[in-house]
Simulated scan of single mutants.
Amino acid sequence: MSSFTATDFCVDLFLLLRQHGLALGLKDLFAVLSIVEQKWPWPTDEHEEYRLRIRLVWCHALAEEQLFDDLWAPTFADALQEEVGAREAPPPLPPAPPRPETHDTLEQQQDEREQSNLPPSDPSAAAAQWSPLPFYVPLSLVPVDEQFELGSYWPIARRQMVYAWRYLRRPVADGPCDRFDLDATLAATIRYGLYRGPLYRRRERNHAQLILLLDQNGSMMPFHRFTRDLATTAQYESSIEHVEVYYFHNAPSAYLYSDPHLTNPVALQSILATCTPNTSLLIVSDGGAARGYRRPERIRATRTLLRTLERHTLLHAWLNPMPRERWADSSAQVIAALLQGRMFQMDEDGFSQAIDVIRM
C-alpha cells in the first residue's frame, strides 16, 4: 500500500512555490490541508476542482496565478510517478543499527565523497527548503462598545466661522444709485396714473467695524489654530468693512500687541480712540478656565478693561474656548458674572449668540 498522501503533494508544492518567491506561511498551508481529501491520487473529476481551490487560497495576483499554473502540472506528474514507483518497489529492508560517528569516520566519508566526484549540493535550494516558515498570528478584533465616545473637544469649524461672520452686518445705503426699486416704481405709477420710468435706490454697503482681542500663549496654546482661523476668516473671508486684530497674554493691560508673537506693543487708549458706539468688539480667552485657577489679579485686570470698553462701545462679547462646565470655581466664572451674560462658549451656538450681541 502506498504511503504517499495528498498532504505530501501539498507540502511539496508549498515548498516549491516558496522557492520561487511566493510569500506563503504555515497559515496558508493549513488552510489548504483543511479543504483537500487525503485519498491519493485524486479522481479525475476532482483534480481540476482542487487545483482551482488551492490557487484561490495561495495566489493573490495574476503573476502568482501564472507561476502556480506553471508549477502545478510537473509537480502533479512527479507525484503520480512517485506513487507508481512506490507501488512497484520491493519492500524496504530493515534499517541497520546506528553506529557512532567519530572524527575518523567523518573524514572517511568526506574522502569517499570527493573520490566519487559527487556534485556539491546547492546551498540556496537547501536554505529555501529548510528555512523557517513565517508564522502569522490570526487577526482578532477587540469588541467595541457602541456607546463609547472619544474624549476629544472641537470648539468650532472654520466653515462655521465664515458662515457666522455673514450676520455681522451694519448696512448703510450710501453706495451708487443703481438698484432698481420695484416698490417705488409701482407707487409712482399709481400716484401719477401712468408709467414715468423706473426708479432706483442706492446700493447698501456693510459698514461694520470689528476689533478682535485674542489671548495668546500659555493655556491658550491648544486653541491657537481656532483663534488664527477666527482672525483670518474675519479679515479675508467676510464682508466686514474694517477688522483689527490685537493680542494679549492672560489679561489685557495698558498695552496690547499687533502680532501673535507679542513683540509689537500698541497702547490700548490709541486702539479705543478709533472706536465708535457702532464698533463691535470680541474678546477670545479661556479666562483661567483651562487650568482651573481663580487669580484675583486677573479678575481685577479684566474688570478694569471692561469698564474702559463700556465708555467707548457697548457692543462687546467674550468667547471662551473651554466648555461651560469647566468655568466653575475659576476666574472665568467671576468674569462671566461681570459680563452679565455676554460670555459664550466657543461652539456653533455660542459663536452665533456672540454675533447677535455685538451687531445690535
Score class of each variant (00 low, 15 high):
Pro91Ala: 11
Glu65Gly: 13
Pro90Phe: 09
Cys59His: 05
Arg51Phe: 00
Leu67Thr: 11
Ala86Cys: 09
Tyr50Glu: 02
Leu80Gln: 10
Asp45Val: 09
Pro43Ala: 13
Leu93Pro: 13
Ala63Met: 09
Trp40Arg: 01
Ala61Asn: 15
Pro41His: 00
Pro43His: 10
Ala73Gly: 04
Cys59Lys: 03
Cys59Asp: 11
Pro90Met: 13
Glu65Asn: 15
Leu52Val: 08
Asp69Tyr: 06
Glu48Val: 15
Leu67Trp: 04
Glu82Lys: 15
Ala63Gln: 10
Glu82Cys: 07
Glu46Tyr: 11
Glu82Thr: 12
Pro92Ala: 14
Leu80Trp: 01
Val84Ile: 15
His60Glu: 15
Glu83Gly: 10
Arg99Leu: 06
Trp72Thr: 00
Trp58Tyr: 04
Glu88Ala: 08
Glu64Asn: 08
Pro97Thr: 05
Glu48Met: 08
His60Phe: 10
Ala61Trp: 14
Gln66Asp: 06
Ala63Glu: 04
Glu64Ile: 06
Cys59Ser: 10
Asp70Glu: 14
Leu93Ala: 06
Glu48Ser: 07
Ala79Pro: 05
Asp70Met: 15
Asp78His: 14
Glu46Arg: 11
Gln66Trp: 08
Cys59Arg: 06
Trp42His: 02
Trp72Asn: 01
Leu67Ala: 03
Leu93Met: 12
Pro41Thr: 00
Arg87Ala: 13
Leu56Ala: 11
Pro95Asp: 03
Glu64Leu: 14
Glu46Ser: 09
Ala73Trp: 05
Pro41Phe: 00
Pro98Arg: 02
Ala63Phe: 10
Lys39Ile: 00
Gln81Cys: 12
Glu83Phe: 13
Pro43Ile: 01
Pro98Asp: 12
Pro98Ser: 03
Arg55Asp: 06
Glu82Trp: 14
Thr44Phe: 13
Thr44Val: 09
Glu46Gln: 09
Glu48Arg: 14
Glu49Ile: 12
Pro91Glu: 13
Pro74Asn: 12
Ala86His: 11
Asp70Phe: 15
Trp72Gly: 00
Ala63Asp: 08
Arg99Val: 06
Thr44Pro: 09
Arg55Ile: 06
Pro98Leu: 07
